[in-house]
Design a protein around this nucleic acid. Structure first.
Lengths: 156, 156
DNA sequence: TATTGTTATACTCTATAACTATA
DNA sequence: TATAGTTATAGAGTATAACAATA
């Protein structure tokens, strides 16, 4: 990765040789590649990406209106409506009219929805757990520190 | 890959207050969130994800047949054919019959295709470069080390 | 007969525009 | 009149099945 020609420099000088541009590029590719690899581990019998994401949002944020949910998921209200219809039909989300404002609907994850989220989360973690177990304690420490940094980057 | 036989390193991970399961889960989420954030930085006037990925594959691997390309990209030959048609129409890929085997076609990135790849790469890096510049040298060192580990994970 | 590529067709997901009901 | 949600419809993108050309 990012090695300049005619420079057999060892790991010790890594931090001096790597420009921010090179680091950013390499890291971006590694991040994307791993994300793609992790996505391949989905079981086939699952919700679509959009359905899973929407249900996960309700899991994390609690009850939301359709507009709130479509805003958070960065899709249009009609798209989210369709997604929600599928989730309601599957018994994973409950749809109720708002008492405050008759125009609004309140969407809530059902027990079944919460259970499915927890199970799917465990299944998706499994692939990575197998591999993280094989890393050295030092490598795991690096990943733990990187996790914090990556969260910061994603939120900035 | 190779780990010492029957040593799942229990005590070491406890010392960091973080189980492998927790670390794996947190890291997986952070990775996915950052990948999603990076994907949002695409300019609007660009190729679709599939088109960009296929062109990138030709950029990296050199000329490939349709089957080779569809295998690498894990899509069906008809899907890839459609993707390739768009790239050829845009002047980014060249399609030619194989001399070895009259059934095969050879796909090659054109000059314009290679140029577009390089420019897009630079643009996609830009967002991350801005943020990595603001990290401390120590944080950058962590990311550099994590990059190596993440590449290993993605390939395993 | 098997393989490579292509065309025909259908399905999923998302978007825009139009409509209904409430405020 | 404006807003929240829904329905109607269209456009990507990918899949399977059927077909054409070549080995």
């Amino acid at each position: 990765m990012a090695s300049s020609p005619s420079s057999p420099a060892p790991a010790a000088s890594l931090r001096h040789r790597c420009t921010v541009a090179e680091l950013s590029h390499d890291f971006r590719l590694a991040n994307g590649r791993l994300a793609r690899r992790l996505r391949q581990e989905k079981a086939e019998n699952e919700l679509s990406a959009g359905q899973f994401s929407a249900l996960g949002r309700l899991f994390v944020k609690g009850p939301l209106t359709l507009s709130e949910l479509s805003d958070e998921e960065r899709v249009t209200p009609p798209s989210m409506n369709r997604t929600v219809n599928a989730l309601v039909a599957a018994g994973l989300v409950h749809r109720a009219g708002s008492m405050d404002d008759g125009r609004k609907v309140v969407l809530t994850a059902t027990e079944a929805g919460l259970t499915l989220m927890a199970e799917t989360r465990k299944r998706r973690d499994a692939w990575l757990v197998q591999r993280v177990m094989k890393l050295s304690p030092e490598q795991r420490r690096v990943l733990a520190e990187a996790t914090v940094i990556m969260k910061g980057l994603a939120e900035s």
